[in-house]
Design a protein around this nucleic acid. Structure first.
Lengths: 216, 216
DNA sequence: GTTCTATCCCCCATTTGTTGGGTTTTTATG
DNA sequence: CATAAAAACCCAACAAATGGGGGATAGAAC
């Protein structure tokens, strides 16, 4: 069981002490192996493509090129490498930028070393370990982005009208909607007319815009 | 330290044995207290508003009203209650529906009891504990939803065509676009025709949809 | 019983999309 | 620089889709 290949790890961290500690802890953990600690993004971008790595731990507050930019570039070149951010900053902007850049895990500094080692394994096994507040941020983001009910007008629509709106938003023509709902073209027109009135708009395009805007 | 109020928990779970085990484990954990196990969504919806609860664990595969619907209704009535889904299903549809309905935590059945107890505390403290594959799904969703700006077709558009598309996406009519860009209606038509061809679509509405799909 | 919803119909104007021309300006490139 | 290609612009005529204004009917909901 101990004989299989260890997970190959590198670290990008400008604070020598912390980076060194991380490296030591990783190398003391069975199944994990860390060969390199890069002190900045530039050297990592230079060197990483020459190595065969599974996971890279990145601090995002680096001098010079930011950890986020570093992830973006390396992820594009070598998509199979997974990135774990380990940092102090937990402001939304950084978190979302890091994830958008390709990070799959985000831990706050302060996380215990044992937990970090465990998280590395979890990441390798297809998870996305997050510190508690980060996970919550993600869930919030998701909930916002799916919350369709921001538009109070939309509640004024009847069931049927909502159905029609959905289909409009898929790009169907009146004729196709009629076919799909087994009603006549005239009925579709009526429904749309009512929809437009209730939403205070005047055509299909605006309806679609309204529909997609609320999904923001 | 042990003197503060315990976290008040209820469970919605149709499988008696599992529900009972959960309850017992919770009540054996210091700081946690579970008074009720509801066997279905209906009874929970009836009774929960009368209690003062912090967290509800929900199985989504319930007879009758689904756990997801149950969360939606209760969350609307009492937003401060936090929901933790504990279920076997890990298909995207269920996961996303549950989170959209208001769940803040999602664990797969199979998670150890100790881990569940720990996760309850984490949830109460503002985290969003997720089983590994669920967390990864969320991250993927996020990355997709921010990344879709890679519609290669859109790069085929000329500068002017992009301008026109922008205005289409704002809901302007051809006539208005013509006015705004100081060109004739016929020119707008031409541009649109070319846009539709390049994007492999056939009308304004689809253009707007494509536009909004890529930008967010 | 009145109101709301869903369905259908007609007529007519407007908007949009297609086809098939053009001209001029800009850009690329040999 | 010359010239070809691409982009931006314009026109017309027609077809299709859309939107507005009238209706009307049946059934459900209140």
């Amino acid at each position: 069981m101990q004989t299989k290949e260890p997970i190959e790890i590198a670290i990008i961290e400008d604070q020598q002490t912390y980076g060194q500690t991380l490296k030591e802890v990783i190398n003391e953990t069975s199944g994990l192996h860390c060969s390199r600690v890069y002190a900045n993004g530039e050297s990592a971008i230079q060197d990483v493509p020459k190595r065969s790595l599974d996971i890279i731990l990145v601090d995002i507050g680096l001098p010079g090129i930011s950890g986020i930019e570093c992830i973006r570039q390396l992820k594009e070149q070598i998509p199979k490498i997974q990135f774990m951010v380990i940092t102090i900053s937990e402001d939304d902007e950084k978190v979302f930028a890091a994830l958008a850049a390709g990070a799959a895990s985000y831990l706050l500094k302060g996380t215990g070393m044992a937990k970090i080692a465990e998280s590395i394994k979890e990441l390798y096994d297809g998870g996305s370990p997050m510190s508690a507040p980060i996970a919550r941020k993600l869930v919030h983001f998701f909930q916002q982005s799916t919350k369709l009910r921001k538009n109070p007008n939309i509640d004024l629509l009847t069931k049927r009208e909502k159905e029609v709106l959905e289909l409009l938003a898929k790009g169907l023509m009146y004729k196709q909607i009629a076919g799909k709902l087994f009603i006549s073209l005239e009925t579709v027109k009526s429904h749309c007319h009512n929809i437009y009135e209730k939403l205070h708009i005047s055509n299909k395009t605006e309806a679609v815009i309204k529909y997609y805007k609320k999904t923001q």
